[in-house]
C-alpha cells in the first residue's frame, strides 16, 4: 500500500472510530437488536413448505380417468441427459397405439432438469411438487410405474404453469 493510500484511509476514520471500542459497542447494539426479531426458521418436518407450480420436483406420469397419457414414444428416455429413464413399449388392443409396459426413472440419476417434461408431446410426464425424496437402498430409488403414476387432479398447478409459460 502506498503512503498516499494510507493517508486517505486515516483521513476517513474519525477519532472515535480509531478508538475502536465505541464502534464495537455500536456493533454489539446491532446484534443485540437482532436477538428480539422473529426467526426465519421453518420447523421442517412439522411445518412443510408448499411449492408453487413453477417448482421442479420429482418427475411423475400423468394419470387421467381413462388411463395414463404416456404413449411410450421414448423421447424422454432419449433426451434425458442423466440417462435416468427407461421405457419399454407394448401394443394396445387399438390399432397403431402403444403404451409403456415398463417405465422406470432412476431417482439417483435424475437431475431434475425437466427436459423430459419439455420434450413430451403428450404432456404425459411432468414435474411434481415432491421434494423430500429419500431412499435407504439403491434398488428402492428406481421408481416403477406404480409409483410414478399420479392422478391428474394433483398436478393441476404444474399443468397450468406449463400452459402459461411453456
Amino acid at each position: 500500500m502506498s503512503s498516499e493510500n494510507k493517508e486517505k484511509q486515516s483521513e476517513r476514520l474519525s477519532f472515535w472510530e480509531k478508538l475502536y471500542l465505541p464502534e464495537i459497542a455500536r456493533g454489539l447494539g446491532i446484534t443485540f437488536k437482532q436477538m428480539f426479531k422473529p426467526s426465519f426458521t421453518r420447523q421442517y418436518p412439522e411445518e412443510r413448505w408448499e411449492p408453487t407450480g413453477s417448482y421442479r420436483g420429482r418427475p411423475v406420469l400423468v394419470m387421467e380417468e381413462s388411463g395414463e397419457r404416456c404413449v411410450a414414444c421414448g423421447l424422454c428416455s432419449r433426451v434425458c441427459p442423466a440417462l435416468a429413464i427407461e421405457v419399454q413399449a407394448a401394443e394396445t388392443e387399438k390399432e397403431k397405439e402403444r403404451y409403456p409396459i415398463k417405465f422406470e426413472i432412476n431417482m439417483i440419476r435424475c437431475i431434475y432438469c425437466a427436459y423430459c417434461e419439455e420434450v413430451c408431446p403428450e404432456e404425459a410426464i411432468v414435474m411434481s411438487k415432491d421434494y423430500d425424496i429419500i431412499f435407504t437402498d439403491p434398488q428402492e430409488a428406481v421408481l416403477g410405474k406404480e409409483k410414478l403414476l399420479v392422478p391428474i387432479e394433483k398436478l393441476q398447478d404444474r399443468l397450468e404453469f406449463l400452459r402459461q409459460y411453456k
Binding site: T31, Q34, M35, K37, P38, S39, F40, T41, Q43
Partner: peptide
C-alpha cells in the same frame, strides 16, 4: 442459542 438468536434462527 445466543448465536442462533443473533442470526435470527432458533
Amino acid at each position: 442459542k445466543v448465536c442462533a438468536w443473533i442470526q435470527k434462527r432458533n
